[in-house]
Structure formats: structure tokens, C-alpha cells
């Protein structure tokens, strides 16, 4: 690993300015759990590491006036998974944070880092897509917010412009009569996901589905959402026939790869299995009178 300059600016503006000084050679440092490996094994020369942890206010959870939640990009996984409001209102997100490595990783790895690393297997990315979260980005030219599902172009590549900094994730207000689930398949307990699925379902008063979202991880170059889930399941009781149609759509949509962890063929089949499980479980929780969000 070549040596580099280290900066710990106290403000977002200064961080962005430091990055702008050498856009090619700069990297933002959040939790470091991915960056360190990239520095060790990466091919491109890193000349400047800009540590974001000295910037106050990027690691908290705030309730928005509309009932939505704003999560700082530097929020560590361990804080995220333990937060009562998140566990209650966005359960799938808490569950996804729980499986990002073991405790030492979860104490460092951040939500923003997990998203900006742009792995299609990133655990928290999948429920965030299902929750239709927005990513708040800052750059010298100002700020913007984009849907999390639009964050990635390819494995390891985001749509962020050089130097653009993710500062927060905004979760919409929890839906009434809703539930969320996260499902994940691994080779052993401590493993990155072979694939993952997250579903969010809210119900009409008659117990049929009102709004359904489904996201899948590690079955395509980026985390993807399956809009057919919402279309097919709307106003249904999430019955087997409807689920079978969603599974068919999933299997037709996914574009998994072969790698040493699993074959594309297995991932494709499992995408259907996990999608069905995530949806069926979400529906079962939502319909249950003691459901977590009622």
C-alpha cells in the first residue's frame, strides 16, 4: 500500500473542497471496512484519504416532520440495528444491518459506506430500495436527492459525481398497516449474501395489499427492484397464485452471475424462493392484528 495524505475536515464543504483538489487520487473514508481492502488490493493510486468522521452530525437518526426518518450517512450498522424507531418502523432495515459482518465490522461499517461501495450484495441497500429511500448528496454545486435504487450503475460504480458526498438517507414515513422483511442466503452464518430479498407490504382496510415493493440483492449488477411485485399483488391477499406470478417475473428479470460462491442457475432459482418468502412473510406480519406496525 502506498502512503497517502490524510485529512479529517470538520465540515462537508471542506471535505468536498479537499476532494476537488485531486479528484482522481482522493477517497472519502467513512467506516473504512471496505476502503481498507481497496487500498490494499486496489490498482489505482490513492493519494488522499479524506476522513469524514470529524464532521459533526453525519452519524445520527432524526425523525422528520412528516414522520419519515433521516439517517446520517456515517451511521454505524450497530447503531442502526439497535435503534428502537428503526426496529419498529423499518424492521427489514434493522435486520439487514444485523448481518453486516460481526460486531467489530458493524461498529465501524456505515450506512453510507455500504451504499457507496456499490456492491450488488450490500445488505442494507436491499431494504432501502424496498422502502423507496432517497439518498441525499452534496457537492460543490449544491445538493440533490436521488432514489436509492438509482444510486448504482454497475458493481463498484455509483452515479455520484467525482467528489459528490452522500450525507444522509431519507426514509419515507412508515406506511399504515404495513410490514417489511429481509431474507438472505449465505454459505455459512458469517458470509456476504449469495443473494437477498426485501419486501415491504402495506394493506388496505380489507386486508388486501395496497402497496407492495420488492427488492433483490446480488442477482444483477446492482440491487434491483421488481415493480411487477407491486402490480401483481395489488388488491390481492398475497395468495399462492399471485406469488407464483411474482416469482415468474423475478426469475425473468434477474441477471445473476456465476462466481465461486454460487452459480447463476442456483441464484436464479433462489431469487424466486427468497422473493416469495420475503413477500409471504411480510404479508403474514402485516395481516396479523399484533403486526409490528399496527
Amino acid at each position: 500500500m502506498q502512503d497517502f495524505a490524510y485529512h479529517a475536515p470538520p465540515t462537508v464543504a471542506e471535505a468536498i473542497a479537499l476532494f476537488a483538489a485531486d479528484p482522481e487520487g482522493s477517497r472519502y473514508l467513512a467506516g473504512g471496512t471496505d476502503l481498507f481492502l481497496a487500498l490494499e488490493h486496489g490498482s489505482s493510486a490513492v493519494r488522499s484519504v479524506i476522513d469524514l468522521k470529524a464532521i459533526p452530525g453525519l452519524d445520527g437518526i432524526a425523525v422528520q416532520p412528516d414522520g419519515g426518518h433521516r439517517l446520517g450517512a456515517l451511521l454505524p450498522m450497530d447503531d442502526l440495528m439497535r435503534d428502537r424507531a428503526i426496529r419498529t418502523n423499518y424492521r427489514a432495515l434493522a435486520e439487514s444491518a444485523e448481518v453486516v459482518g460481526g460486531p467489530p465490522i458493524r461498529n465501524r461499517a456505515t450506512l453510507g459506506g455500504n451504499l457507496c461501495n456499490a456492491s450488488p450484495a450490500a445488505d442494507t441497500a436491499v431494504p432501502l430500495v424496498a422502502f423507496m429511500a432517497m439518498a441525499v448528496l452534496s457537492s460543490a454545486s449544491g445538493g440533490r436527492a436521488i432514489p436509492v435504487v438509482r444510486l448504482w450503475e454497475a458493481p463498484g460504480r455509483t452515479v455520484l459525481r467525482p467528489g459528490e458526498l452522500m450525507t444522509a438517507i431519507e426514509l419515507p414515513p412508515p406506511l399504515p398497516a404495513s410490514a417489511s422483511t429481509f431474507e438472505r442466503l449465505t454459505r455459512s452464518a458469517m458470509d456476504i449474501a449469495l443473494l437477498s430479498a426485501s419486501a415491504v407490504i402495506s394493506l388496505n382496510d380489507d386486508g388486501t395489499c395496497r402497496l407492495v415493493t420488492l427488492a433483490l440483492g446480488a442477482v444483477a449488477p446492482t440491487v434491483i427492484s421488481i415493480p411487477e411485485a407491486g402490480e401483481v399483488l395489488r388488491d390481492t391477499n398475497c395468495d399462492d397464485a399471485a406469488l407464483a406470478r411474482v416469482v415468474k417475473a423475478v426469475i425473468e428479470t434477474v441477471r445473476p452471475i456465476d462466481d465461486i460462491r454460487a452459480s447463476a442457475e442456483y441464484r436464479r432459482e433462489m431469487a424466486g424462493v427468497l422473493a416469495k418468502r420475503a413477500l409471504a412473510r411480510a404479508y403474514a406480519i402485516a395481516i396479523e392484528p399484533a403486526g409490528i406496525t399496527r
Binding site: 455459512s188 456476504i192 465461486i260
Partner: peptide
């Protein structure tokens, strides 16, 4: 029995790390 194997791809060891060579953790 369940997870460990040195996998060779293109004549090279493809899982020369604990990320992909899975020894049991306490949860297994």
C-alpha cells in the same frame, strides 16, 4: 463437510481469504 473447500478457477486458487474460504464461526 458443509462449507470449506479451496476452489481453483483458471488454474488459480480463487478463495485465498477468510471471506470466501468459510471456516465455521460460532454461529455455525
Amino acid at each position: 463437510t458443509l462449507s470449506e473447500e479451496m476452489i481453483f478457477h483458471d488454474d488459480r486458487l480463487a478463495n485465498a481469504n477468510f471471506l470466501d474460504y468459510k471456516i465455521p464461526s460460532v454461529l455455525d
